[in-house]
Design a protein around this nucleic acid. Structure first.
Lengths: 304, 304
DNA sequence: CGTAGCGATGCAATAAATGCATCGCTACGT
DNA sequence: ACGTAGCGATGCATTTATTGCATCGCTACG
């Protein structure tokens, strides 16, 4: 949209921190971009950016403006999507951030299903931790966030959730496979490979630790579930994952899952959420509804 | 603001219903304005206006757009006011709609007092009935509405209120001045001059009538309280008003007020409200706070 | 102490918006 | 029934705004 171009420019400058660099990514000359900034500052009567030797940084006024600008741009997208919806076509773009566990199977399924019904809708799906997911919503970088045990902030507005019990995963040779359900002392006694602290599963585990005491025998920490999954067949240790993040029964070849007693580690929840107070574009809103409906029908014990 | 000019233009066209007429009020040629519309429609891919033989009317897409446009413009005003507030100066414009009763003394006082503290803030104060007040909020024509017994809609967000007992007013010669408090049968027996049905006082009176029965002896109906106030000295009839709408004790020369039994007519409430979900400019927000503080300190019986 | 990277600015080139005159259309009044 | 007034659309010339180039002054970095 033409009339938002300047705001778009300002947004880019704020993100990259320099007018010249921003000009490159926007495919215009730095002169033109600089002049836009100066004109806007003239209009507002105050500088939007502080000039630093190596670039620019938002001033206090700029912070206020940029928040408005991002809101305006997101709202215009919503307007365009609503207008497009009037003419029957469902078009638009949905930007999603979600935790690693949710991305691999759950999001793949749902995005594919939605795209089958609405080929005009494009997606961007990014993986990130719980804290970054919320800030992506606040910056209007993402329309929806799907996370396990989200950070509680006023900016995050949950619109659907499903409880998820943490499960232990291990190789078929591990001695704990003999038990059908693991206790807290089983966990304490085992060698563990855990996701990093930004992860929701890890968070729940740390909470249980604080409450129940003991010491975790954490031999490896990794932010890649792929690494974890492949590693447990190489060394005799166990890790944890939520059911929604595990492949379906049929292809579960390389490792074994075991339930964990509800007394050992409490259930967590997967949340679908958006930024508080924001009106989503038509496509994103519909997609969110379908996600939630799917979550509601999801029995946590059905895909163990 | 430059980048909102086209939206401002579209808003004006939508209001006056014709590109040429709008062009006159905007002091530009119809050509330029027409071209803006065409360019915007080109961008959106759909017509914003339906072309009629005598002008234009918003299309369905236009309705969506205009709502967005008004929101954007109001929000930009808020941003500007917040930015101005950063440099210490309190500037801006506050647009208020309120009922006739509230305008004459209450609003005069408060606007004057606020302007004394903040000379940089300008006001527009319009009188209108309760229903129009709410729609003015919805259209972003007004920042605040102060009304007696407002219409209940989701768009109206009350942010403060004070109970107000309806009082009877009459000339000093009226026989009901002998009583210190009027009953329902006193009211039924008297000749009445009433405000029109759009008025909140009248609304409360009609409610009481529906509940208690009887027949009002309405000899004159007028939407002007000036007319009513002057008329009651000419013919021997009574009317009604809320305390907040009456002059202070000292200058109350031409007519007499009498309380009405709480059993006869229940108390109503004066509300200060804004549009639901909208962020007000700094000045408007502060003014609203002062209004509310003043309402809270207002004892309904103190200025009888 | 030179150099590289930054934002600001004068001046010319380019692109965009505007204004005028005019077209075709429809409803309204006579 | 028909002229007319009012409307939006459009081609063309003009004015205005935007952009690009070259260059300045500045500061941190090596």
């Amino acid at each position: 949209m033409k009339h938002l171009q300047t705001l778009q420019y300002v947004d880019t400058i704020a993100r990259v921190g320099s007018i010249r660099k921003a000009a490159e990514t926007l495919f215009i000359t730095s002169t033109a971009l600089n002049r836009r900034v100066l004109a806007l500052e003239e209009e507002l009567g105050v500088p939007i950016f502080e000039r630093l030797p190596r670039g620019v940084r938002l001033s206090a006024a700029g912070e206020i403006l940029i928040h408005h600008a991002r809101m305006q741009m997101a709202d215009m997208e919503r307007v365009q999507s609503q207008i497009a919806d009037l003419s029957g076509v469902r078009r638009g773009h949905i930007s999603i951030v979600c935790g690693q566990a949710l991305l691999a199977y759950f999001m793949v399924d749902h995005v594919a299903r939605y795209r089958q019904q609405h080929p005009g809708v494009t997606f961007s799906v990014s993986v990130c931790n719980r804290a970054d997911a919320i800030s992506a919503l606040s910056n209007y970088d993402a329309d929806l966030a799907i996370v396990f045990e989200p950070v509680r902030t006023p900016d995050f507005h949950p619109i659907g959730s499903v409880p998820q019990a943490i499960q232990a995963i291990m190789s078929a040779e591990h001695e704990l496979t003999k038990k059908s359900e693991l206790t807290w002392s089983d966990i304490l006694s085992a060698k563990l490979i855990l996701p990093t602290r930004a992860n929701g599963v890890r968070h729940l585990l740390e909470e249980a630790l604080a409450k129940k005491g003991g010491e975790l025998n954490t031999v490896i920490e990794s932010d890649s579930f792929d690494f974890i999954r492949n590693y447990i067949v190489s060394e005799n240790c166990i890790s944890f994952q939520i059911p929604i993040g595990l492949p379906k029964k049929s292809d579960k070849s390389s490792f074994i899952t075991r339930a964990i007693g509800i007394n050992a580690i409490p259930h967590g929840h997967v949340f679908v959420g958006q930024m508080n107070g924001r009106a989503l574009p038509v496509a994103a809103s519909l997609f969110a509804n379908e996600l939630i409906k799917s979550l509601e029908n999801l029995d946590p014990r059905s895909n163990n």
